[in-house]
Nucleic acid binder design. Structure first.
Lengths: 224, 224
DNA sequence: CAATATCTTCCAATTCATGGGAATCCCCCC
DNA sequence: GGGGGGATTCCCATGAATTGGAAGATATTG
């Protein structure tokens, strides 16, 4: 993920330092020396904002109050003020964190990443497997090929999930039975056979491609 | 909003202090003296967790690593360790903030509220759901189809909200029961079935469209 | 106390899992 | 290259599991 970070500070040496740090970490950095410049850079839609409080012209707190409604990304205050009242004011005005100078670059970076991690988590969509145009959404229990949905039954989906998520492994029928059914296999593997057949039939019908490889005398494996 | 906060610290005087503070602020407070107690209290589904690092038995960092996957609420570390390495470890293990003792109650409260505010904001951005002409206002708990209001009961609305806000996921009946009722499901899931039926009947009547998909043998899912 | 919401129970309809046997395929040996 | 034996695939009828629906009991609310 390539994050965009907006740094607002009137101290050029600090913005330069931060720019270097976050560029090194793979961020796209935008820097402003005052509130009005910062306002223009908002159109870049940063994912997170570092905001100095003490600035000539409009200060950071006022800037934060102004944009808070329309900007949803986390805003972290950077400041030399250590008075508790100032901190509280920062949070009250909509800040998400308050970091006092001097701070360590490592801690600042860790905090920035913690906030971004949370943002991403809140947006997170479920994990999908994809290969050869076939897509499986494990949470939604959906399988589709180029947008076309393929209906699988419960056990069929369980088997596909098992094979696909361990696609470098060969599973014998007993292993599949025990994994999917959660029971000990007692020589009873014709069920697995039949399900493999049905899965193959459905996938072949939809994709013209056999995703399951038979390892003769051993078992089955998902083709990569 | 009545937030639920989980406090985990082995120092009874501190948990007592925090309990009083957050109770006064209108929170519902759960407190644990160690990790295993805390684990049990997770079923209360707290909105935020304050976690001491130094505890006998499993420490806070280990506890955090363990639950981070399954618990999405913010986790704030409270600790007397001020070494930078410790802070970085806290963030690395999935913490959202790191507060060093001694701290001021006012700042702690401000930080807690900043995190909760952000959580709410992230949810609120999807406070109005719309698809196929159906609109749900989660804050007002109102459902309507092309201006025509559809009356849902409390539990019915809870279920719709759960399914719709996680429309990429399949929920089995036990999961729905535990989420909506907040209780452990003991095989008793015909209630959920019946509520799903009622919701379907109401929506079908109003919209001529079935928004809930049955995943046979698994559960239910909101159609996208 | 009435109205509404929630929960329980039971049964029919549907879908899926299962197992057996026939047909086919694959590998090895000649 | 051809045949034999075992493993695999295919087909299909049956029965079990799951869901949807009706009706009524119980709890909650105003």
């Amino acid at each position: 993920m390539n994050w965009k970070i907006l740094i607002v500070d009137d101290e050029p040496s600090l913005t330069a330092l931060l720019r270097r740090q976050f560029t090194d970490c793979g961020y796209t950095v935008f820097a402003a020396n005052n509130s009005s410049e910062a306002l223009k850079l908002l159109k870049e839609q940063p994912d997170i904002i570092l905001l100095d409080i003490n600035m000539p012209g409009k200060d950071g707190l006022a800037f934060c109050r102004e944009i808070r409604e329309s900007v949803s990304c986390p805003i972290l205050f950077l400041t030399a003020r250590i008075m508790e009242q100032d901190k509280l004011a920062g949070f009250r005005d909509g800040g998400d964190d308050y970091i006092t100078k001097p701070f360590s670059l490592a801690e600042l970076t860790a905090r920035v990443e913690a906030h971004l991690r949370r943002e991403q988590r809140n947006k997170a969509s479920s994990a999908c497997l994809t290969s050869h145009g076939l897509t499986a959404d494990l949470a939604a229990r959906e399988l589709s090929f180029e947008g076309e949905s393929i209906a699988l039954t419960r056990k069929e989906f369980d088997i596909v999930e098992l094979l696909w998520t361990n696609s470098s492994q060969v599973f014998d029928r007993e292993h599949i039975y025990e994994s999917v059914w959660g029971l000990e296999a007692n020589g009873n593997n014709s069920v697995v056979k039949e399900h493999i057949r049905k899965i193959r039939a459905k996938l072949l019908e939809a994709t013209k491609w056999d995703f399951i490889e038979t390892i003769w005398g051993i078992g089955y494996k998902w083709k990569k």
